[in-house]
Simulated scan of single mutants.
Amino acid sequence: MADIKPSPPIRLRPTMLSDLDFVLSVEQDPLNLPFITPWERIQHEGAVRFPDFRHFIVEAGADYASAGFVILQGCRNPHHSIELKRLVLLPAMHGIGIGRSCLRWLAQMAFRDLGAHRFWLDVKALNLPAQALYRSEGFVEEGRLRESVKTADGYDSLIVMSMLADEYARRAEAAGR
Rank of each mutant, 00 (worst) to 15 (best):
S101C: 07
H79V: 09
A92W: 03
L89E: 01
G97S: 02
S81Q: 15
C102L: 05
A62D: 12
L72H: 06
V70K: 04
V88M: 09
G74C: 06
M109P: 00
N77M: 08
F56Y: 15
E59R: 02
P78G: 05
F56A: 05
G61D: 01
L87W: 05
P78R: 13
S101H: 10
E83C: 13
L103R: 05
I96F: 01
I82Y: 08
K85C: 06
L89D: 00
I98G: 02
N77P: 04
E59Q: 12
I82F: 07
L84Q: 10
L103I: 08
A107V: 02
E83I: 03
R112D: 14
L72K: 07
L89K: 05
K85I: 00
M109A: 14
C102E: 02
R100F: 03
V70E: 02
F50S: 13
I57Y: 10
G95V: 01
R86V: 03
M93V: 01
G97D: 00
L90H: 09
Y64F: 15
H79C: 06
S101E: 09
A110E: 07
C102Y: 11
K85G: 13
L72N: 04
R54M: 11
R112G: 05
I96M: 11
A60Y: 09
R76F: 04
F50D: 15
L90M: 12
W105C: 11
E83K: 15
A62H: 09
A67R: 08
M93E: 11
A65V: 12
H55F: 14
F111R: 10
W105P: 00
R100P: 00
I98C: 02
P91R: 12
R54Y: 09
R112E: 15
C102P: 02
H94D: 00
V58M: 07
G95P: 01
M109W: 14
S81M: 12
V58K: 08
G68E: 03
G95F: 01
S81R: 15
D63E: 14
G74T: 09
L72W: 08
R76P: 00
I96R: 13
P78Y: 11
L103E: 07
S81D: 11
D52I: 07
C75Y: 10
F50A: 14
N77T: 10
G61T: 06
F50Y: 10
F56G: 00
R112F: 03
G99C: 06
Y64H: 14
G95E: 00
A92G: 04
L89I: 04
A107C: 12
I82M: 07
A107L: 08
